[in-house]
Design a protein around this nucleic acid. Structure first.
Length: 159
DNA sequence: TTCATGATTGAC
DNA sequence: TCAATCATGAAA
């Protein structure tokens, strides 16, 4: 039994955003606008942005500081704290099967943008089962404008 | 300052 | 299939 108030889930779906050359990446072209500031931090920091004026999406910065690449966390399977997730999401809705849903279930907002995941309450661990289950790759979701980057298989899903 | 749009979600 | 809803970024 996990401590009260603690939430955990196994990440099942991610997408890579490969920085300044990637037309689908917010840092494309070397953009240094306010929104993407946190993507320029050292790998392991969070990049959280708001989309469609409604939902938040969680990314993890992946490279050295100054190289703005990140992985979008798109979906996960809840491990504990489902009660709280249900409360955050509403009883009639699914919990963590989408990037915006995952953030709402975990209560993530701009407040957690730029957090250092190595020393913050929000953490990500490598799974013991890594390499022991199949990973499928497909093109990224919702990217129909990125020309040559649209069809690259940068979405990774387990199961 | 204006304007178009989106790494989504949920209802119809 | 489509509306909600607004911060962001580019243009003016």
């Amino acid at each position: 039994m996990a401590p009260k108030g603690r939430l955990a889930a196994i990440i099942t779906e991610t997408e890579a955003y490969l920085g300044v050359k990637d037309k689908a990446c917010h840092s494309f072209g070397g953009r240094t606008t306010p929104r993407v500031q946190s993507m320029y931090l050292e790998g392991g920091h969070a990049y959280i942005y708001k989309i469609y004026g409604l939902h938040f999406c969680l990314n993890v910065v992946t490279r050295k500081a100054g190289d703005p690449q990140a992985v979008l966390i798109r979906a996960a399977r809840p491990i504990f704290g489902e009660e709280i997730m249900r409360k955050n999401r509403g009883p009639r809705h699914s919990l963590t099967d989408g990037p915006g849903k995952l953030c709402q279930a975990f209560g993530l907002t701009k407040a957690q943008d730029a957090w250092d995941l190595l020393i913050s309450p929000l953490q990500i661990y490598e799974s013991d089962s890594r390499g022991h289950f199949p990973v499928r790759t497909t093109p990224r979701i919702g990217i129909d404008y990125a020309e040559d980057w649209t069809h690259r298989k940068l979405r990774y899903l387990s199961l």
